[in-house]
Amino acid sequence: HITLTNLITEETTHVVMKTDAEFVCERTLKYFLGIAGGKWVVSYFWVTQSIKERKMLNEHDFEVRGDVVNGRNHQGPKRARESQDRKIFRGLEICCYGPFTNMPTDQLEWMVQLCGASVVKELSSFTLGTGVHPIVVVQPDAWTEDNGFHAIGQMCEAPVVTREWVLDSVALYQCQELDTYLIPQIPHSHY
């Protein structure tokens, strides 16, 4: 019994991606959610070859190996599938703050939850000092008015990073160091 759908849910078992011959794909929301959820992320060749051979072929032979941004053979989907007991964002409290493009905020929040993070909706909701690490995620190029994202640091004691930190961490299924993704914050004294 196979159901085809464009939506990823808890029940989804396989995410089928358009890939090149070496099982490398573009980074899409579907790709990120498939990895975050520990699903099989496979090339569409799995479907076409299975139909051709009239049997369901082994997914291992068709698993996506990499993507056009993070590298052609990083094995993120395999790492995620085999590490669902070791979520990459466990112990983190993440607030997805401000506008985002090409990806609804609720989907970004679901993605970080699938990776083990707790989501907070407001900067004031962080449970500071409880052994949980707060992180604010923003997408600077989605902000149309002044660079308000440079002043988020005044509203909460949390590192502010770009959305790329989430996307790179999920694609590779390895929590990336914050340093290269940090957004400089204007210190309090400048006000």
Rank of each mutant, 00 (worst) to 15 (best):
Q154R: 09
V41R: 01
C156A: 15
P99A: 08
P159N: 15
Q176G: 03
V41P: 00
S189Q: 09
R90C: 15
V69Y: 05
K121N: 13
E11V: 02
H150Y: 01
A21V: 04
T105R: 09
V16P: 03
V166R: 02
S83A: 10
T130M: 12
D61A: 15
T12G: 01
D106K: 07
H133E: 12
L92S: 06
G131T: 05
N73I: 12
Y31Q: 00
Q185R: 11
Q113G: 05
P99Q: 03
H74I: 11
I88K: 03
F62T: 01
I88T: 04
V170E: 03
G71Q: 05
F126M: 14
L29S: 06
C156R: 15
T5L: 14
S43I: 00
L182M: 04
K18M: 10
P140A: 03
S83W: 01
G76D: 00
S83T: 09
S125C: 15
E177R: 12
K55A: 10
S124P: 06
W110E: 11
I35Q: 02
R86L: 15
V160P: 03
S118Y: 03
T3I: 11
A158T: 05
P99R: 11
W165L: 02
G116F: 14
V16L: 14
N102K: 04
A21E: 09
V41S: 00
N102R: 14
F89I: 02
V138L: 07
C175S: 15
Q75S: 09
I51S: 07
G116S: 11
H188L: 06
F23Q: 05
L7F: 12
E157V: 14
S50H: 03
F149M: 05
H188S: 10
A117I: 02
H190L: 12
I94L: 07
H190Q: 14
Y173L: 13
K18T: 03
L178A: 10
K55L: 15
K87I: 05
Y181W: 03
V120P: 11
M155A: 09
T3A: 12
S43R: 01
M17T: 12
Q49N: 09
T144M: 13
V24H: 05
G34T: 02
C95F: 10
V42W: 00
V138T: 11
M56P: 06
G76T: 09
K39N: 04
